[in-house]
């Protein structure tokens, strides 16, 4: 008999795609997708339950369907449309209710939380690479950082109360993908990219298919614990913006807040306080445990994930093609006979 998987947050792109992917797995019999809103795309063989995880109905669904695996994917930063308090309500209270429902269910064996590397926050006191046993250096921060820390602590509490349930937490880096719509992709899609003046943060990215594969791996493999999930290597924000060929707009940190709130109103990108801290100080996570304990290796490095994402966008003003053309013209005009490609590296 195969597994019965309940996936929360299927209205969002990543949740819906994950639900479809796990439904195709031979080890899984049934997949039930839960969300407040109906999903925008095709759910395939996934049965959809329109329910709020803050509602006790979710407990009935888990009991009646004999759900043995819960994949909690609806912990998300507040999007431009919803307010902070609404996001906090959904993230923290939603998780509490879901865990309460899970605790009553005798059939439950696995619980997978899709967390985020945002849990570490961003500050000038951060080590270069966070490993799983470290905490945010600036207290538990504000906004989404605080939410996700609370969510993780509730999940740890659940793991203590139900030791028979295998609990796995995946702290995933920012996902990038061609069709993906998240605050991060929204930021990089801006025609002129605002940055914090005088700071160049380190960033890690994860290809969206790698993210889904990692959650599938964690769902099906019987490994408990907390794992950082990110593509290998880091990129500087300035480097990423140059690869997009878009102009950067360095603003003093207080001005980023003002510009950001205007953009937030226009639903263009997310510039919350924790996001501005991230744009100033960046973050890197250590992925040794992901490779050695979880046994998962992303197919793309940070640079490859970003490269694929950049290729899916229309090239910016200072695209590589134009820079190359200008260089060739200049070398040509000066009578250089050298092949430009030979000089790389």
């Amino acid at each position: 008999m195969g597994r019965v998987v309940l996936v929360t947050g299927v209205a969002r792109d990543l949740g819906r795609r994950f639900a479809r992917q796990i439904a195709a797995s031979p080890a899984v019999d049934r997949v039930i997708g839960v969300d407040v809103q109906p999903p925008r795309g095709d759910l395939g063989g996934v049965s959809f339950v329109r329910a709020d995880i803050r509602n006790p109905i979710i407990a009935k669904v888990i009991m009646r369907e004999h759900v043995d695996t819960v994949v909690h994917m609806s912990v998300l930063p507040s999007a431009g449309s919803s307010s902070r308090t609404a996001a906090k309500e959904l993230n923290v209270i939603g998780t509490m209710q879901l865990l309460a429902a899970c605790q009553q269910s005798p059939d439950l064996e696995h619980f997978v939380l899709k967390s985020s590397t945002s849990v570490y926050g961003s500050s000038n006191r951060d080590p270069a690479m966070f490993s799983e046993d470290m905490n945010a250096k600036h207290g538990f921060g504000v906004g989404f950082v605080k939410d996700i820390n609370e969510v993780e602590s509730y999940v740890r509490g659940f793991a203590r109360r139900r030791p028979d349930v295998r609990v796995t937490t995946l702290r995933t880096a920012n996902a990038l993908g061609a069709g993906l719509s998240t605050p991060t992709t929204g930021y990089f899609k801006l025609p002129v990219i605002p940055t914090v003046l005088g700071f160049d943060p380190r960033m890690q990215f994860l290809n969206d298919t790698d993210l889904l594969d990692a959650i599938e791996h964690a769902t099906l493999a019987d490994i408990r614990g907390t794992f950082n999930i990110a593509g290998a290597g880091v990129m500087m924000l300035s480097q990423a913006i140059r690869r997009l060929g878009r102009p950067a707009l360095p603003l003093p940190s207080f001005a980023v807040g003002a510009v950001g709130s205007a953009m937030r109103q226009a639903r263009m990108a997310d510039f919350s306080r924790e996001q501005i801290a991230f744009l100033a100080y960046g973050r890197g996570v250590d992925t040794t445990r992901m490779r050695e304990v979880l046994g998962f290796k992303p197919s793309r490095t940070t640079e490859q994930a970003f490269g694929e994402f950049a290729a899916s966008l229309s090239p910016g003003l200072i695209s590589e093609r134009r820079v190359r053309a200008a260089e060739e013209a200049l070398v040509g005009a000066l009578g250089g006979r050298n092949q430009i490609g030979e000089l790389d590296g």
Binding site: A128, M129, D200, R202, G233, V234, M235, M236, S238, Q239, A240, I241, R242, R243, G245, G282, G284, E303, I318, E320, V323, R324, E327, D344
Partner: peptide, 14 residues
Amino acid sequence: RRRLTGDYTVDEYG
């Protein structure tokens, strides 16, 4: 050109 197009690598400490 490499600098302008971001075609370089940094290590994990930046």
